[in-house]
Design a binder for these strands. Structure first.
Length: 268
DNA sequence: CTCCTATCCTGCGAGC
DNA sequence: TGCTCGCAGGATAGGA
C-alpha cells in the first residue's frame, strides 16, 4: 500500500495523536505473526518503555523508546489508527498509561514489526539507498550507480538499494515527469537526464506528502483521512485515458511483474 | 554478479 | 445474481 509519502503522513499523524513520552502499558498480539513472527517477548520488552519519537526511514516507521527502535513496515495494506472500535484484521494493540490506544490493522499481513536495541543498526537499514529527499541523493550519485546497471529504469528506481522509499506509483509518476521511458536501460542514462530524474522524484514526493499521500483503495493515515494525490496522477492507473500533456493514450505494460503506466509520446 | 519470477495473503472489481 | 480470475501501494529467496 504505502510508499514514502504515505508512510510520512502516517508518521506525522501518529505524532499528532500520541503525546511525547507516552509510556507503554499493555501490548496485545492477536496472532503469532504477520509477514514474520513477532519479535521474542515483544510485549514484555515494550511494557514500561517511554515512546520518545516517531521517525521514518524509507518505508519504515521507526518508533524510538528509551531502549529500543521498533520498526513497523506497513507492507501493502498495513495501517495504524486510534482504537475506536474493533475491526477485522486488527493484529496489534498498543495501550499507553495515558492517551489513546493504537491499533495496527493489516488484511494481507505483508507488514511486519521488528525490534532492535538502539545501539545496533537495524538489519533492514544496512543495504538501503539514500533518502530521496536528503542531500545524499543527487544527480551525480544516481548517474554513477546507473553506469553498470542494465536493468530498466523502472526496476532500477524500485530497487530500495538505489534509492529508498519509492514504490510503483511514484516511480511511474517520476519517470513521466522526467520525460524518461520506463524501459530505458539505466546505463543509457545521461547526466542531464539523471539531473531531471532526481528533480522529478523529489518534486513528486514533496507534492504527494503535501497532498496527504495517495489513496488507491484503502490507504488512510492515522487520522483516518485518505490522501488526495491520486487526483493528480499523470499516468498511474490511467491506461487508455488521454495524456494530460499530449492527449495521446497512456499505455500499460508489465515490467518485472509490476504494472507500468507511461506515455509513449512524452517519455523517451 | 545481475536480473527476473514466484511467493506470501486477503479483498475487490471485471467479465462471464 | 454468483462465480472465477487476475490484480493490488512490497520485499525477497531462489533460479536462470
Amino acid at each position: 500500500m504505502p510508499e514514502l509519502p504515505e508512510v510520512e503522513n502516517v508518521r506525522l499523524t501518529l505524532k499528532n495523536i500520541l503525546p511525547t513520552g507516552s509510556r507503554f502499558k499493555r501490548i496485545t498480539l492477536n496472532r503469532p505473526d504477520l509477514r514474520f513472527p513477532f519479535p521474542e517477548q515483544l510485549a514484555e520488552k515494550l511494557k514500561g518503555q517511554r515512546l520518545l519519537n516517531i521517525d521514518r526511514r524509507a518505508k519504515y516507521l521507526v518508533f524510538e523508546t528509551e531502549k529500543y527502535l521498533l520498526l513497523s513496515h506497513l507492507g501493502m495494506t498495513g495501517s495504524w489508527r486510534e482504537l475506536v472500535a474493533d475491526e477485522v484484521h486488527d493484529h496489534v494493540v498498543w495501550e499507553f498509561e495515558s492517551g489513546p490506544t493504537l491499533v495496527f490493522n493489516d488484511p494481507r499481513r505483508f507488514g511486519f514489526i521488528s525490534l532492535h536495541l538502539k545501539s545496533e543498526t537495524p538489519s533492514h537499514f544496512v543495504d538501503l539507498g539514500p533518502e530521496p529527499l536528503s542531500s545524499e541523493f543527487y544527480a551525480e550519485y544516481l548517474f554513477a550507480i546507473s553506469r553498470k546497471k542494465n536493468t530498466p529504469l523502472k526496476s532500477f528506481l524500485l530497487d530500495q538499494k538505489i534509492v529508498a522509499g519509492l514504490g510503483n506509483i511514484y516511480v511511474c509518476e517520476a519517470l513521466f515527469l522526467a520525460g524518461l521511458k520506463p524501459a530505458r536501460r539505466a546505463q543509457t542514462l545521461k547526466l542531464v537526464e539523471s539531473e531531471r530524474l532526481v528533480k522529478a522524484i523529489q518534486n513528486i514526493l514533496k507534492q504527494a506528502i503535501r497532498a496527504g499521500g495517495s489513496t488507491i483503495r484503502d490507504y488512510k493515515n492515522a487520522d483516518g483521512k485518505s490522501g488526495e494525490f491520486q487526483e493528480r496522477f499523470r499516468v498511474y492507473g490511467r491506461d487508455g485515458e488521454k495524456c494530460r500533456t499530449c492527449r495521446k493514450p497512456i499505455k500499460l505494460v508489465r515490467q518485472a511483474g509490476r504494472s507500468t503506466y507511461w506515455c509513449p509520446q512524452c517519455q523517451k
